[in-house]
Design a protein around this nucleic acid. Sequence first.
RNA 1: GGGUUCUUAGCUCAGUUGGUUUAGAGCACCUGCCUUACAAGCAGGGGGUCGUAGGUUCGAAUCCUACAGGACCCACCA
Length: 878
Amino acid sequence: MSQKEISKVYSPSSIEEKWYDTWKNQGYFHSEPNKDKKPFSVVIPPPNVTGVLHMGHMLNNTIQDVLVRRARKQGYETCWVPGTDHASIATEAKVVAMLREKGLDKRDIGREEYLKHAWEWNDKYGGIILKQLEKLGCSIDWERTKFTMEPDLYWSVIHVFVDLYKKKKIYRGLRMVNWDPVGQTALSDDEVIYKDLKSKLYYVDYKIAGEDSSLTIATTRPETILGDTAICIHPEDERFKHLHGKKAIVPVVDREVPIILDDYVSMEFGTGCLKITPAHDENDYEIGQRHDLKIIDILNPDGTLSEAAEFFVGEDRFEARKLMEGKLQEIGALQKVEDYDNSIGFSERTDAIIEPRLSKQWFLSMKEISQPALKNVMDDTIRLIPEKFKNTYRHWMENVRDWCISRQLWWGHQIPAWYTGDGQVFVAETAEEALEEARKETGNPDLKMEDLTQDEDVLDTWFSSWLWPITCFEGFTKPENEDIKYYYPTNILVTAPEILFFWVARMIISGYEYMGDKPFGDVYLHGIVRDKQRRKMSKSLGNSPEPLDLVKDFGADGVRVGMLLSSPAGNDLLFDEKLVEQGRNFTNKIWNAFRLVNGWSSDNSKEYEHEVACTWMESRINETLNEVEDHFSKYRISDALMSLYKLTWDDFCGWYLEMIKPPMGEGVDQKTLGNTREYFRTILGLLHPFVPFITEEIWQYLKDKGDAEHIIVQEWPKAGQADQSILKDTEQVFKYISSIRAFKKDKNVPSGEELTLFLSAQNGTSYEKFSPYLKRMAKVSDLQFGDGPEGSVKIMVGTDALYIPFEGKIDKEAETERIRKELEHLNKFNSSIAKKLNNERFVENAPSHVVELEKKKLEDSRIKIHALEEELAQLDSK
RNA sequence: GGGUUCUUAGCUCAGUUGGUUUAGAGCACCUGCCUUACAAGCAGGGGGUCGUAGGUUCGAAUCCUACAGGACCCACCA
């Protein structure tokens, strides 16, 4: 293809789909266990089926794809398993909303009918998000797609529940839940939205039994007084020592309750006396447990007062509050009412005020089962990146609380527990097994299926996703298959720190419990994508760009680079479209370098002209490759990309191609051209994990005999030796060139005008082999080595001197001033070093290499001072 | 309230166990260029008393203490 036919601007849209389909159809994404290769496996953090691709997914999956593509090129048997999570709460909310639009209520149509609708919805809208990942270029093994509710995974979850129950790790118990009286369901903590409200604090007097005195408590919910079963004070509180062992009378209901001592009570807050309502407050419940208090549940599920309240039965809780206030006033127990700022929980779904309420839930006891998970993270068997999360992890694991795994929802894995009429529980994988067991246990062989009812609740979504690294490879259903043996443990998990406990910790726990091994080696925790003002991206703020539009506008490669450039592990990414623009510009730069090289012809009559440039370029590539490997080993992915970005843009395009660029109409000697194409291929190969599409496209023009057909599987290069002396000398030559250009700009000499140059290098290095480059790139017509003639302008580059015989006018005063300033600075510097070296304690204590270095600094600065003084003298004599 | 962590250029961040001339990078900014791969570009340039105050040390962005101000996680207060 001739250069004219290749567009001046890289246009991603024309090639992205082509290459994605090719990769997929050629089977590069698919993996099967292969004994001859080491596995590299990754499981995707399964997005919610209801989800739509957002910027967080873009970041998460770009990182995974970079790691996966690199591993594939390194020769690992690479397997990236995709899938979706049924997300019981989120999906249920959407389905319920959809039904509402049709005028249906889930309670009216019943569970079976409801689930039909849910599955329909799921089939229609679920999993769109996975499809969208193709646009980003993710090299996912699509043949392995999993869903947490498909039969195989469903059974695994049930199996694990039953197993843990049999191991006595799962139990059923009372617990305070967030109760939504409108929706009449328990809510998880995430579904409760706290809002700051102005409310009232009521001060109420309680009489002391058998005495003519009283104590005062403060409460924001006076109606709960009806459920009080104790008064609590701090054991050390001097003010109330006289109340120890006595009883108080709850006003209105006139119930005698104990005055108990517990250091939960703050002596500073309120009155120092706390009323205890175990049925309607989490902390009160715990205190109640400690002191063996009675529990009086005064609320019905719909938020009205129950029979147990005795007063205001059937009234709504807020109505009851008013009535209670009146009643307290009436009997003279209400001392005062104060304004009070309070944060109150609301239901995300119904906006009702949440009532803490006791209910029976299923729990997994965590203490024992989580021990291996704690140990193996602490000793780095599993590495958390960045490491700072180890502390948070330890803190959580050491204080781990039992996990409430039941949810009052229908979409999900229904709890495999069956109850007899009299409340006995039988847990089994199937109803038949449960029945069989029930017959045995009850001694009643006539028990029928109809006599058993299955638990209505489903399991917490995380109770299925905590098995993900196992169920992805069908580890419970097909434990004999090669898959689970070969791919488990997976190599790395890439996710956000927000779900370190919800998900990551629990996967580690289940991994040790069921596989006897960790689920993954490393955990890379990346930040949240935020907007420029550090706000979380959200639909309601409208501050999130549409990811697929970005891909359309800037190309998938551009977006990937944009996301990665500013995303060190653990830090939030402040998304700015400019980053993506920078990524797009980078792909365009690569594209144009390709256009240049592709347009060069080979001139076989020329000798090998550019050994110097080639050796340098090769050394830079090796040097960079070493850096890149180091970055990858620490998961510094943005640093790895930045190293390659600079190698490509600055070194390869900015310097190297300019060095070897032939004069108009000429070709490049065969050897140099061959080398150049080789360097380009190497750079493309290194860039491929970051910018897969453009590198694959260009590869097709540059690949050589013996190369892989597609760059996606072209072997990842191994770093060779970098020639340190050529690197150092070339860098110095680049400084000469820049200095001359700066001189010209400063003196208003047109950049194209050619000069004569004398170069006097201090350290004895011969720069003669660089002559062609100096001449060409600094526009020097005559280059000589050694000191320049009298009257030349002298420019110091480090300790080397450049002399330019300059005919133009030199502003003597300005020049003198410039040198004076530099001298002043140097002298100061020089004396500070001298002072340091004169300090005996420094010379004695500092390591010798540091002392040597200081001596060198001193020597170098002396040389420079000397040179500048000479120049000054010359200026004066003119 | 408990815990973790952070504060370096206009912005986002590096800075490895204290020691590489004047603390780096990318972007942004300023100046000059449509130079025949690329204006999505090229060349050159300015910019930081490393949050504040003490301390340890021959030497501190780096270690210690206090203070100020963020961030996150957990628990949320009658």
